[in-house]
Design a protein around this nucleic acid. Structure first.
Lengths: 256, 256
DNA sequence: CGCGTTGTTGAAGAGCTTCAAATCTGGTGG
DNA sequence: CCACCAGATTTGAAGCTCTTCAACAACGCG
């Protein structure tokens, strides 16, 4: 692995508190791989030998049951994934597929666990990463159980807007059928949900979406600090850096 | 706190690998509390100062949005909860309410974090606990997104059966309206879902449920090792103790 | 015994999916 | 450059799932 890559990795929050020795041990056997779009990285049930860190590209995590399939998350850089399975040395509960050409760092699970047991500061960072992932999923579950499909879409758009700089125009960073699956609906229903948001100023043109009436949209969406992970609103105490994102793929960082 | 209580706590998997010093430091300021049924322990958004460990009784974790409320988990002993918020020193994403008279150990968040940073073995245990909780939620999300209400109920019953010893009769360990909310449906719909399972040999009498035709029920439920957390079936490699449960309240251990 | 809560049942309707067909889109090979 | 194809998206129609509202029965508790 090149030194410039190593520097990039050293700078990840995950390794921020690690001792140099730990970092060297953990990344010693690591390697950086490029995969084309559509590559299956992991199947549900596979034993997990590596921690994956997505450095570039896009990865979809999916779950299946009875020939049905759903998208659990769409990850963008920089995201770790299947960390929980690695920590437990267990098999993966999710499949992973690249959506775009992707650059992925693979870190030996054994080395990671050894590093954690050796270096409490590093282990604490991993715990924080895991805790952030956990909270992302709690947000997901609440989103799914408490909101209708149109409400989920409205909130997705509001969140996208915040993450893409707050402008009127946002870009959906993947295919609509993937978005539909992520939001827990069929592609047809997503199409109709967009049509319903017409009344809230939403105009769709391919992957471009114009939020013509953000206030009205936001009144429908009613985003909540305890479900959506925007910039923390007033109620939330400042100075506590939460390392969490829920798997909206517009995220700066995310995890799974 | 009494010595016998301390011994019970020392025996928890969470503290299995901890040094004595760590254990003493972490539990030093801890206290054991009894709460009557219906006590609100935490509201969504509350800052979290303690790690909670449910030693006896039953606790419901809930999420709300727009006057709607859903049950995220029903915990039974021995379960930690809001560990993720404690690790991140963040506010709670879930409310917590006792369903029964409950005995709960409260451990200072500060002490816990100090212990984690000091003792890598203990920190690793916490990581494993968190990872198990994470995987429980992944199972939950898959359950919600991939299965219909009747299928979720069928799987709930099959899982209950396994956890309650495999007999024909199982007991729902809480009110049906709580179960409905846990499974993501209305009480009315739960009632009708039970009625539909009549064709699969399911007979309901209050909290007692007789699974008159387990094979047929199981063919409908189609439980999966990657969603449901039964005794690991054949595919799953043995010897890897996964510390995870999804929040079915019949669980021996669970977490959140 | 009366009361409030919980659970069940019926009817109506909203929400979502399914299937089918039409339309659009990007990429390919000639 | 253009025709063509495969896949993605949209639209329509039908039907299934689930919720809502209302009424009623069952239960537990004071």
């Amino acid at each position: 692995m090149r030194t410039t890559d190593l520097d990039r990795i050293r700078a990840l929050p995950l390794f921020a508190g690690a001792e140099d020795d730990t970092f060297n041990e953990v990344t010693g056997g690591a390697f950086l791989q490029r995969f084309p779009a559509g590559t299956t990285l992991l199947l549900e049930g596979d034993p997990v030998d590596f921690l994956y860190i997505l450095l570039d590209g896009q990865v979809e995590l999916q779950g299946t049951w009875k020939e049905k399939e759903t998208t659990l998350a769409v990850l963008r850089p920089v995201s770790t994934f299947i960390l929980a399975a690695v920590v437990l040395d267990a098999t993966s509960l999710m499949g992973a597929v690249t959506l775009d050409r992707s650059e992925i760092l693979m870190i030996s699970g054994n080395a990671l666990r050894r590093g954690m047991k050796r270096d409490a500061a590093f282990c604490f960072e991993v715990s924080q990463e895991l805790a952030g992932c956990y909270r992302g999923l709690v947000r997901s579950v609440k989103n799914l159980k408490l909101r209708s499909a149109v409400e989920r879409l409205a909130n997705y758009l509001v969140t996208l807007q915040v993450r893409q700089g707050g402008g009127i125009d946002v870009t959906i960073p993947h295919e609509k059928r993937v978005l539909a699956s992520l939001l827990g609906m069929t592609p047809e229903n997503l199409s109709r949900a967009f049509a319903k948001l017409d009344a809230y100023g939403v105009v769709v043109d391919g992957n471009r979406v114009r939020l013509g009436n953000p206030d009205k949209l936001s009144r429908l969406a009613r985003p909540s600090a305890w479900i959506d992970n925007h910039t923390p609103p007033i109620e939330e105490p400042l100075g506590k850096a939460e390392r969490e994102r829920w798997p909206l793929s517009g995220a700066q960082r995310s995890c799974a």
